Computed example of a mutant assay.
Amino acid sequence: MTEREWRPPAAYVHGLDGPTVVVPGRVAAWLERHANLRQVRTAQRGADPEVDAVLVALAVAAAAWRQQAVPGSDHGTDQRNRPELGASCELSTTEAADRIGITDRGVRAAIAAGRLPAHRDGDRWRIDREDLEHYRAGRAA
């Protein structure tokens, strides 16, 4: 599945013995970042072994998605051509625009509208690479 494809919720539910939800790595990374899953995993550790295992599995999937470096993959960004970029790399609006195929002005408009998280560094906007990937996936849907 590419980032441009949309799947209905039923596509993620599987299982004959009871419903099981398959969570893509990109979604696990989003949940970990925006739903504070690290804090939940730490606070609830030991309360329920199955919950512990699922929260760890989500963390592993999120980490794997962040490290993915396969060109054309729907799991993260190709980092082979940019080895200096890490998981917490911040991009300028121009770099972000180049990566997602829109104009610099379009990136700034998304920031102003609150659709793309960013912060000011002096007189420039800085965008986290992971936030940009989530924004790109949201645009595709």
Results as ranks from 00 to 15, higher is better:
45 R>N: 06
62 A>N: 04
24 P>Y: 06
7 R>G: 08
15 G>A: 03
39 Q>R: 11
74 D>S: 14
138 G>M: 12
38 R>W: 00
50 E>T: 12
59 A>R: 11
89 C>K: 01
63 A>G: 14
129 R>E: 13
26 R>P: 06
67 Q>A: 15
7 R>M: 13
89 C>S: 15
136 R>D: 11
44 Q>R: 14
87 A>I: 12
35 A>P: 02
67 Q>S: 15
105 R>C: 06
121 D>I: 00
62 A>Q: 06
24 P>I: 01
120 R>V: 05
94 T>P: 02
5 E>A: 15
109 A>G: 02
110 A>V: 07
69 A>R: 09
31 L>R: 03
84 E>D: 12
95 E>Y: 03
116 L>M: 07
13 V>A: 04
120 R>S: 09
72 G>W: 05
68 Q>F: 01
38 R>N: 08
75 H>K: 08
74 D>Y: 07
103 T>H: 07
39 Q>H: 08
46 G>I: 10
99 R>Q: 12
55 L>P: 07
80 R>W: 03
34 H>R: 15
47 A>Y: 11
113 A>Q: 14
68 Q>T: 14
30 W>E: 09
134 H>F: 15
16 L>P: 01
26 R>S: 13
133 E>D: 15
63 A>T: 11
53 A>Q: 09
42 T>R: 15
132 L>V: 09
108 R>F: 05
134 H>N: 08
48 D>I: 10
47 A>G: 05
92 S>A: 03
2 T>H: 14
69 A>M: 07
89 C>T: 13
87 A>T: 10
58 L>F: 04
98 D>K: 07
140 A>E: 11
112 A>H: 12
29 A>N: 02
45 R>C: 03
114 G>Q: 06
11 A>Q: 08
65 W>F: 14
14 H>S: 05
42 T>I: 09
71 P>W: 03
113 A>P: 09
99 R>E: 12
61 A>V: 06
39 Q>L: 10
85 L>Y: 06
123 D>K: 10
